[in-house]
Amino acid sequence: MRHFGQLDAAVRRRLFHREPEPVDPRGDPAALAAALGGTLYCPADRAGLAADVRRQAARGAVSMVLCLEDAVADAELPAAEDNLVAQLTALAREAAAEQLPLLFVRVRTPEQIGELTRRLGPAAELLSGYVLPKFTEAVGARYLEQLAEAAELTGRRLYGMPVLESPELAHLERRRTELLAVAELLAKHRERVLAVRLGVTDLCAGYGLRRPPGLTAYDLAVVAAVIGDVVNVLGRADGTGFTVTGPVWEYFPLQRWGPELAGLRRELELDLANGLLGKTCVHPSQLPVVHARLVVSHEEYSDARVILRREAGGVLASSYRNKMNEARPHRVWAERTLRRAAAFGVARAGVGFDELLPAVCGG
C-alpha cells in the first residue's frame, strides 16, 4: 500500500515532484505513524465488513479502525465480536496483506485484546494493532500489558493507539497530573505506542458542546486548551514525544463548495500548524481531503532540504525568497516535513490543494 496508489501513473507524474513511498507495516515506527493519514473508522458489526475493507483500500484508504466501542450498541457487542472474527478470517483467506490497509481494532476493555487475538488465530496477522479508548493512567497499564501479551501470542509486533478523551483531561484541576502520568506510562511502553489519538467528541460531551461545520475544534476554547496541553506534554520534539493525530471531523458527505469541506480544510491547516499529523475520519468522502492536504508543497520541501543541508547553524534565504530559514530552530520541522513527504509525496511547483483534491476525488 501507498498513498495515492489508486491514481493512474500518468496522473501521479503530473501532480508530484516526488511520489509517495510504499508504506511498510513492519518498517520504522516513526515513518509508519507519519503515514497513517486519514484513519477511517468502520463499525465492526457491518455484514459486509471484509468487502468494505477491500473497497476502501482500492479507493485510497491506508489505515482503518474496525470499531467495537462507540460505533456498536451495547446489546449488539457479542454479535459484533463474532462478525469481526468471521470477517477478518474470510479476509485473510481472500486478500493479500499488501493489498490491505493498516488495520486496527478499537476495543472496549483491555481484556478484549487478548480474547480477540486468540479467537482470530492466524487471521490476527492482518492486524497492525488495537485502538485503546478512554485511555487514562488508571486503565492504561492494563491495556498495554494486554497488548504485550497479544504480541507475544502472535509472535509479531502489535501497536497500540491510545485515545485521550476522558474527563480527567478536560477538567483543569486534573489535567496536568493526568497528562504527566500518561506520559510516564507511555514512555515505559514506547515501542508499542504508534500514535496518540484525540477524542474530541467525548471531550465536547462533557460540556454539552458540538462544533458546527463552519468552526473548527480550535474555535472551542475548552477543546483548544486540551489539544495544546496534549501537544505540550506528548508531542515534544526532544525524543520523548509521540505522533499526535488530529480530531475527528463529524460532517459528511463533503461537497466541493460546502461549509463542511471548508471547515475540514481549515481544521487540517490548524492541525498541522499545531503539530498534529493525521486525522480520524468517519466517512470515505473525508479521506481525499485529508490526504490532499497532507501532500508536502514544493516550497516546504525545498526549504526543508536547504535547512537539513546546513549543519553549522545560521540563517538561509528560502529559494522562494519569501521567508527566513534558520538551520537550528527549524531543523526538527524540516525532518518532520521530509518524513511527511516520504508518506504523502511532494507536489510539483505550482500544484496545490485545489489541483490535488479533484484528481484524488476522480474529477
Rank of each mutant, 00 (worst) to 15 (best):
H3S: 05
H3N: 09
F4R: 06
G5F: 07
Q6Y: 07
L7A: 06
A9E: 12
A10N: 09
A10W: 11
R14W: 13
P22A: 01
P22V: 00
R26H: 06
D28G: 06
P29T: 13
A31E: 03
L32A: 02
C42S: 12
R46C: 00
R46V: 02
A47N: 07
G48Q: 02
L49F: 03
A50K: 00
D52T: 01
V53D: 01
A61R: 05
S63Y: 04
M64Q: 12
D70I: 12
D70E: 15
A80Q: 11
N83I: 04
V85Q: 05
L88I: 10
L91T: 02
R93D: 09
A96Y: 01
L100M: 04
L102Q: 15
R106V: 14
T109L: 09
P110H: 11
E111T: 01
E111V: 06
G114H: 01
T117V: 06
R118T: 07
L120T: 02
S128N: 02
T136G: 11
V139Y: 12
Y143R: 15
E145T: 10
L147W: 07
A148L: 09
E149Y: 04
A150S: 13
A151K: 03
G155K: 07
G155A: 04
L158Y: 02
M161C: 14
P162H: 14
E165H: 11
P167K: 00
E168L: 10
L172F: 06
R174Y: 10
R176C: 03
T177Q: 05
L180G: 05
L180C: 03
A181P: 06
E184D: 15
A187D: 12
H189Y: 13
R192T: 03
V193H: 14
V193M: 10
V196F: 11
G199W: 11
T201L: 06
D202S: 08
L203H: 03
A205D: 03
A205T: 05
A205E: 08
R210K: 09
T216V: 07
L220C: 02
V226M: 00
V230P: 00
N232D: 06
V233Y: 04
G235Y: 00
R236H: 04
D238C: 03
G239H: 10
T240I: 08
G241E: 06
T245A: 00
T245I: 04
V248K: 08
F252D: 10
P253K: 14
R256E: 05
W257G: 06
G258F: 11
G258V: 08
P259C: 05
E260C: 05
L261A: 13
G263V: 07
R265S: 11
R265T: 09
R265C: 02
E267R: 10
L268F: 00
E269H: 11
E269Y: 06
E269A: 08
L270H: 11
L272G: 03
A273T: 07
G275I: 04
L277T: 01
H283I: 04
S285F: 01
P288G: 08
P288I: 03
H291E: 02
L294V: 01
L294K: 01
S297Y: 12
E299T: 10
R310K: 15
G314C: 06
L316A: 10
A317C: 02
R331V: 08
R331T: 03
A334Y: 14
E335C: 09
R336H: 07
L338M: 13
F344M: 00
R348Q: 15
E355L: 12
L356C: 10
P358Y: 13
P358C: 12
G362Q: 15
G363L: 15
